Computed example of a mutant assay.
Amino acid sequence: MSEQDTSQQDKKNQKHKAAMEKQKAKVDARIEEASTERGVALLLTGNGKGKSSSAFGIVMRALGYGQKVGVVQFIKGQQLSGEEMYIKDHCPQVDFHQMGTGFTWNTQDRSGDIAAAEKTWAIAEPMLKDGSYDVVVLDELTYMLAYKYLDEDTVLNALKNRPVEQSVVVTGRGGGSALQDIMDTVSEVKEVKHAFKAGIKARQGVDL
């Protein structure tokens, strides 16, 4: 490397170092400002793939810290998923429940779906009152609100009034602005492409 090339490389390194120092200062300042210690409410929404997968990533993270976790899945349940099989086989400390009716477009039974939703909520609601749970995941709960299978005020009040140290993760498309308003973090997963639309079957370990 020539002397000129070395000089240019040194300038790039110095510029990069200065930019990273500035970025670190901003991050450190935000960390310093975050002084409130409590559980968080996280909504994973949007029409893209990965909402439930992200929620189960949080489950694994919580288990890494030895925390108590509850998982309640609305809608899903007719077809075994990789998450369900792994948790049942390897994570007996996770309280895992499923509504078990499958998707609403399969059942085509509104009355039956409402009854199933209410029965499943009767399992989820006590978790949101139990301070021994560090993390509660309510997978696909948004559909229960969108289809009006559950009373919105009842659900929102339970989410808002949960124990202060408890974190809750809600997944699913939609759910309404009132739900978004009470959540601390709202992340939207956007679909850019999806293999299914190209005729590619769902894949075990990735989709199931």
Rank of each mutant, 00 (worst) to 15 (best):
E3I: 15
Q4R: 12
D5S: 14
T6Q: 14
Q8Y: 13
Q8N: 15
Q9R: 15
D10R: 15
K11I: 05
H16D: 14
H16K: 13
M20Y: 02
M20V: 14
E21P: 06
E21V: 03
K22I: 00
A25H: 12
K26E: 14
K26H: 03
D28Y: 05
D28L: 09
A29T: 05
R30G: 09
R30Y: 03
E33D: 10
A34G: 01
T36C: 09
A41M: 11
A41R: 10
N47F: 04
K49R: 13
K49Y: 08
S52P: 11
S53F: 12
S53C: 15
S53W: 12
F56R: 00
F56A: 04
G57M: 14
I58L: 14
V59T: 13
V59P: 00
R61I: 04
L63S: 03
V72D: 10
Q73D: 06
Q73W: 01
F74Y: 10
I75N: 11
I75Q: 07
K76D: 07
Q78W: 00
Q79S: 11
S81R: 08
S81W: 03
G82Y: 10
G82I: 14
E83F: 09
E84R: 12
M85N: 05
Y86E: 15
Y86R: 13
H90E: 11
H90L: 15
C91D: 06
P92A: 04
Q93A: 01
F96G: 12
H97N: 11
H97G: 07
T101E: 10
R110V: 06
S111E: 13
S111C: 05
D113Y: 01
A117F: 00
K119H: 07
T120I: 07
T120P: 01
W121C: 03
W121P: 07
I123N: 00
E125L: 06
E125S: 15
D130W: 01
S132L: 00
S132C: 13
D134C: 11
V136L: 01
V137N: 06
V137R: 01
L138T: 04
D139K: 05
E140W: 04
Y143F: 11
M144V: 03
A146G: 07
D153P: 10
T154D: 09
T154H: 09
V155D: 00
V155Q: 04
L156W: 00
L156G: 01
N157W: 03
A158D: 08
A158W: 04
A158F: 04
K160R: 08
N161M: 10
V164S: 07
E165M: 11
Q166T: 07
S167K: 02
V168G: 05
V168K: 00
V169D: 00
R173N: 09
S177C: 03
I182F: 02
I182K: 09
T185E: 04
T185G: 03
V186N: 04
S187P: 02
V189C: 02
V189N: 11
K190F: 05
E191K: 08
V192R: 05
K193T: 12
H194V: 01
A195T: 11
A195Y: 05
A195V: 10
F196T: 02
K197C: 06
A198L: 14
I200R: 14
Q204D: 08
D207Y: 00
